[in-house]
């Protein structure tokens, strides 16, 4: 119990720093990829600090509450994950958080957020199936590994597996990394809102958040980023301590890959995003799931 409390407090305090730092590094690397000097790595923190000093202005005061709820559920999902709770619950509370974001945005009824919200829902439709599939995949993989434990959704069980989950879930890994582009709001899938306002919907879903409200979304994004990267790490982690190091390297590589994809692709339209992501989910996730199911039934048959 106390261990869980420490982990939760540690997550709440450290995750924004790691997330902000990652974003700072992202901005620096992006800048260097574009032959710019770029902002200092601490720039995201300075931005957020500045946002808190700005006036909160909204046509609907409810927005602030909804955004706080969004932040709460993101933090909740992250805490659940790190104390080793149910993976399915983690992804569901993440979806709840996203719904609060959508509600906060649509509470203002402006055209730009309207379009942004529609697109956000479209994006959720693209990435939620893969998130759930990932949870299912981990469940099935946990049964595959000879750990002596039953099939489990619990993160605390998954990390004690003697084989890395990626051995059974390569397709899921590709699919999950693919939807991370949507989750991190990076080109080519930064439709609903982008890190740059140079978009037809300006800042899309976040267009109506001002001052502190926008800072809350930024911070929530950092928590979410850390949590999702931890899920990427979960693909690698097993009972061997060295696997943690490998997981960290894989996470760094995946993050770099996201930056690279962000810098080498144009923003696509929503229908193409839909086709591509579902294509990837069905091809990689589907085939992987199919094989996993069949292999496990074969094994059962032989047992």
């Amino acid at each position: 119990m106390i261990r869980s409390m420490i982990i939760i407090i540690g997550f709440i305090v450290l995750a924004p720093f790691i997330g902000g730092l990652l974003e700072g590094i992202d901005r620096k690397i992006s800048a260097r990829m574009q032959r710019r000097v770029g902002p200092p790595i601490t720039q995201p923190f300075m931005d957020v600090a500045k946002l808190f000093n700005k006036e909160f202005l909204s046509v609907n005061k409810q927005q602030l509450f909804l955004l706080l709820a969004h932040l709460f559920f993101v933090v909740f999902a992250g805490s659940m994950f790190f104390i080793g709770s149910d993976l399915l619950m983690v992804f569901f509370s993440l979806s709840t958080a996203a719904m609060f974001m959508v509600m906060a945005a649509s509470s203002t009824h402006t055209p730009y957020t309207g379009v942004g919200t529609m697109r956000e829902l479209m994006q959720m439709m693209c990435c939620e199936p893969m998130e759930l599939l990932t949870a299912v995949g981990f469940y099935l993989a946990s049964g595959m590994a000879k750990t002596g434990i039953e099939k489990s959704f619990l993160v605390s069980d998954l990390i004690h597996s003697n084989v890395s989950a990626i051995m059974y879930l390569p397709g899921f890994f590709i699919g999950f990394v693919f939807i991370l582009t949507i989750k991190f709001r990076k080109s080519p899938f930064d439709l609903s809102t982008s890190h740059h306002a140079h978009q037809e919907v300006v800042k899309g879903i976040t267009a109506e958040f001002s001052g502190g409200a926008y800072a809350i979304t930024e911070i929530a994004e950092w928590y979410e980023e850390v949590m999702l990267l931890a899920v990427v790490g979960l693909f690698i982690v097993n009972s061997n301590p060295i696997s943690y190091l490998v997981a960290a390297l894989v996470v760094i590589f995946v993050y770099f890959l996201e930056i690279l994809i962000d810098n080498t692709s144009a923003r696509v339209k929503w229908d193409l995003m839909f086709k591509i992501t579902w294509g990837v989910i069905i091809v990689f996730g589907g085939i992987n799931l199919f094989l996993l199911e069949n292999v496990s039934s074969f094994m059962k048959f032989f047992q």
């Binding site: 710019r36 080109s187 740059h196 140079h198 978009q199 923003r267």
Partner: peptide, 16 residues
């Protein structure tokens, strides 16, 4: 144009 379709690296390269 590159900026219009959200391709920041291409935008910066053209302007460079």
């Amino acid at each position: 144009l590159a900026d219009g379709f959200g391709f920041e690296a291409l935008f910066n390269e053209a302007w460079r």
